[in-house]
């Protein structure tokens, strides 16, 4: 009798496009940003990308608002999604 072990492979979007869970979306005001990168490191999903300024991947952002709460200069605002 042969047994197979269930093996999973690393994939982005294991749970689908989690951006659809979002009610509020974070919007970054680049003029206020001081590039401390706290939003980048505190983001539970890792959807904030380090570019010249932080950029949010809205395809996967769940809209928890940790980034907006932790931003020391309040450069991130949570805006209601329009659908």
């Amino acid at each position: 009798m042969s047994m197979k072990t269930a093996i999973s492979y690393p994939t982005e979007g294991g749970m689908g496009e989690t951006g659809s869970w979002r009610v509020f979306k974070p919007v970054i005001d680049e003029s206020k940003c001081i590039k401390c990168w706290l939003c980048w490191i505190y983001c539970p999903e890792g959807v904030i990308v380090k570019k010249e300024y932080p950029e949010v991947d809205y395809e996967y952002c769940k809209g928890c608002g940790v980034c907006a709460n932790e931003c020391p200069v309040k450069a991130i605002k949570m805006e209601r999604e329009k659908k």
């Binding site: 294991g14 989690t18 999903e45 959807v47």
Partner: peptide, 23 residues
């Protein structure tokens, strides 16, 4: 914090609740 490595080993789109401390 600025000098932390940029490699991500947690891939986007996990099944965690929004705001989960584990991830």
């Amino acid at each position: 914090i600025k000098k932390f490595p940029e490699e991500e080993y947690i891939l986007k789109g996990t099944a965690a609740c929004p705001g989960c401390p584990i991830t």
